[in-house]
Every structure is written in C-alpha cells, then in structure tokens.
Amino acid sequence: MSPLLFWPFALLMLMFGVAVVINRNPVASALSLVVSFLGLAALFMSLDAYFIGIIQVLVYAGAVMVLFLFIIMLLDLRAEEGRQVNWLALIGGIAVALALLAQILYVIHNLKSAHQAFPPLARSTFDDVRNVGLLLFGSYNLPFQIIGVLVLVATIGVVLLSRREPR
C-alpha cells in the first residue's frame, strides 16, 4: 500500500488516542479508543498484514470495546463528568510518559537494525493467514496450548465468581 496513506491513519490513531485520555465522558473515551483501533488496523493493512489488521478490528473494536461500552453505559456518568482535574497527577502522568518516550527513543537509537532500510517484501500478496497458522500450530504449539489452558482457567474462574449461591 502507498506510504501516502500511512500519515492520515497514523494521525487518526494518535488523535483519537489523545482523545481517549482527554475526554471526560467515558462513552466518548471508549468510542475514541475504537476509532484509534481502526486506525491501527489500517496501519497493519498498509504493511500487507491483513490478518492481523482484521483480527484487531474483530477482537478489539468489535468484541472487547462493545463489552466496555456495555459496562460504561450501566454506570452513573454524571459523577465522572463533574470531577476536577488533579494537576499534580496530571503533571506526574506527563512526566512518566515523557520518560517512557525518552527510553524508547534511546533504545531505538542504539538498535542496529533500526538504522538499516529493509527491502520491500518479495511478494506483497503472501498468505499471512497460513503463515500465522503454521507458526502457531508448529513452532509455538506448546505456548499456544498453555495459553488455551490459561484462558480456560480464567473462564471457569469467571463462571465461579458470577454464580449465585443456591439458597
């Protein structure tokens, strides 16, 4: 895909990422996060990683954020909207974010592979679904299965916690 499309989507993603933090209304924040995810998915697709991009939309924008919104809508939003800005916390947060940015820049600067230009993909239409599948079920089969067991345990835990005690 054209690098021309990188800038609008990156800008979209960052703008709505900022909007998540700035918005006082939690519903607005959640929806900004959805738009930010869509921008991220578009960036993945501009790297020809269609599978990852679509999964980003399917899982995060389509399922996780719907549940977030679902919970937020059941809360009382007026209390959140009227809250005062805590300046000390704001300055502290910005300082931590800047420190993280400085560390990331330092690491990238010292990384050798970050300074070389990578050649374009040999074929832009390779089957990324097959490649991801082969990697997951071949080289990374054991971690994949362990994650499966972990998710199963989490599911059982949720069922146990949300179950009402029989009277």
Binding site: L31, F51, I54, L58, V66, F70, M73, D127, D128
Partner: peptide
C-alpha cells in the same frame, strides 16, 4: 478480493452493534 474475506465480513458486521447500542444509550 482480500485474502481474509470472511474475517472482514465478521469484523465489519461486529461494528454494526455500535449504532444500536449508541442509539439506545
């Protein structure tokens, strides 16, 4: 004609719920 056609269908269709949820809210 993208190589993740059916996943695209599910992904975009799953965004349809926002309109309805937001309308209700």
């Amino acid at each position: 004609d993208i190589n993740v056609g059916i996943l695209y269908v599910f992904a975009i269709a799953s965004l349809g719920v926002y309109g309805i949820v937001l309308a209700g809210w």
